[in-house]
């Protein structure tokens, strides 16, 4: 150890991510994109994340609170894009495409991606950054159509054979999406039962409260209950036991660009 500063830096790194660098084998640009998004999503304290391809630093991202504040390449910091600057945010799509391009170029031909972290000073109070979800969307990991109605229609069409009843919840009102009957009444009862528990689910990387998600609950000896959130719209449905695969497939297909 070179001195107190190096020791402090090592301790900070250990506190942030442990003493072993996170990393994973690269099987293509898609893996690198997923790895980058996951690391941004997971980073809460202000940190500079340096991504190494086969142990060579190729890209860095300044992150805090699960939001991307800036990124650049180690060779030329002058070309860094700062996303905490409101003017830069107006060209957000362009900047994120630049990020995707840099990442894909860096990942090309590499066998392993690893992460090195270093503490950053706290960002300015005005720094907003870009949420990991938005970065994931720009990198092709979250392809939700702009219109939630279109997405929900597509999902219901795909998952139709497995669904017994479906309804949209909006401002405490339930709007049936399938034929009304005893199953719709049962669904309404189930929603009333689970809503208090759903409201208290933890908000975190695994289950982002604000993001688009699909939650399938499989109770013992009963139909599946699913909750689907998309751009603020919320749909509940009852589905046949054992139809998890069809429901997930339908959700993924509905998220593909049309």
């Amino acid at each position: 150890m070179a001195g107190p500063a190096a020791l402090r830096a090592a301790l900070d790194r250990a506190a942030a991510h442990g003493v072993t660098r996170p990393g994973c084998p690269l099987t293509g640009a898609a893996t690198a994109r997923r790895f980058l998004c996951t690391q941004i999503e997971m980073t809460r304290l202000p940190r500079r994340l340096t991504f190494l391809m086969d142990d060579v630093p190729r890209l860095w991202c300044d992150v805090a609170g699960g939001r991307l504040l800036a990124f650049g390449t180690p060779e030329d910091d002058r070309t860094a894009s700062r996303l905490d600057d409101p003017e830069a945010v107006s060209q957000l799509s362009e900047a994120l495409q630049d990020l995707a391009g840099r990442l894909d170029r860096a990942a090309k031909g590499a066998n392993r991606i690893t992460l090195r972290t270093a503490p950053l000073p706290a960002p300015a109070p005005t720094a907003s950054g870009v949420p990991a979800e938005r970065v994931a969307q720009a990198l092709g990991l979250s392809l939700v159509p702009l219109q939630p109605e279109e997405f929900l229609d597509l999902f219901l069409q795909q998952a139709g054979p497995a669904l017994r009843a479906a309804a949209q919840l909006s401002e405490d009102m339930l709007y049936p999406l399938t034929e009304e009957g005893t199953e719709m009444e049962y669904l309404a009862e189930m929603i009333e039962t689970v809503l208090p528990d759903l409201d208290t689910l933890p908000d975190g990387p695994g289950l982002p409260r604000a993001g688009d998600r699909l939650l399938i609950l499989s109770p013992e000896g009963a139909d599946l209950l699913l909750q689907l959130s998309c751009s603020g719209a919320q749909v509940f449905a009852l589905a046949q036991p054992g139809s998890e695969m069809l429901l997930l497939d339908s959700w993924h297909r509905a998220r593909e660009p049309t």
């Binding site: 997923r34 998004c37 999503e41 979800e133 998600r213 939650l215 609950l217 499989s218 959700w251």
Partner: peptide
Amino acid sequence: CQQAVVAGATG
């Protein structure tokens, strides 16, 4: 519940 599946943007 016996099982839960949670799907999001990153998996």
